[in-house]
């Protein structure tokens, strides 16, 4: 497996996506809990640069015992990445689109070693599709 060093672990946060380029392909890195996930920076909707989007909690609603709306807030338990082109939202833990489960971001394998982030470099798109976590459409 061809692993490439792309940045330092400290460069990757949970608040925003860090975009790196590997052999001309942009990959976005974001911290989820204790690990890092890596997505190709191309949206499965209409190919926008999804990793340039905001990372935040989805908006959730609080209901009272009569099921009236009490309040809205950002959910604390889940983080989404929002594509800047049309607003499709993807769970940063899985890459799954939260409004259309048929589509999801392409995930790349990623590991941290001695303060450095490495991602795999698939040779071709076809090879990439065969990898774990990627779109098998």
């Amino acid at each position: 497996m061809d692993w490439r060093a792309v940045c330092r672990c400290d460069d990757v946060t949970a608040e925003a996506v860090t975009v790196v380029e590997v052999d001309g392909v942009e990959v976005g890195l974001v911290r989820v809990g204790g690990t890092i996930t890596a997505f190709e920076n191309i949206c499965p909707h209409q190919a926008g640069p999804v990793c340039d989007g905001e990372v935040m909690g989805p908006v959730e609603v609080l209901l009272d015992s009569d099921r009236r709306m009490l309040d809205e807030r950002f959910a604390a338990h889940r983080r989404i990445l929002i594509c800047p082109w049309h607003g499709y939202s993807f769970d940063v833990a899985t890459g799954e689109c939260i409004t259309d489960r048929k589509i999801h971001l392409r995930r790349w394998k990623v590991r941290e070693d001695d303060g450095v982030v490495y991602v795999t470099v698939p040779g071709t798109r076809a090879a990439h599709r065969g990898q774990e976590g990627s779109n098998a459409t």
């Binding site: 499965p44 909707h45 190919a47 798109r125 779109n135």
Partner: peptide, 12 residues
């Protein structure tokens, strides 16, 4: 067309 599946909006 190198990757007809790239855009997966709606039915392929």
């Amino acid at each position: 067309c190198v990757d007809e599946n790239l855009i997966t909006e709606g039915p392929a």
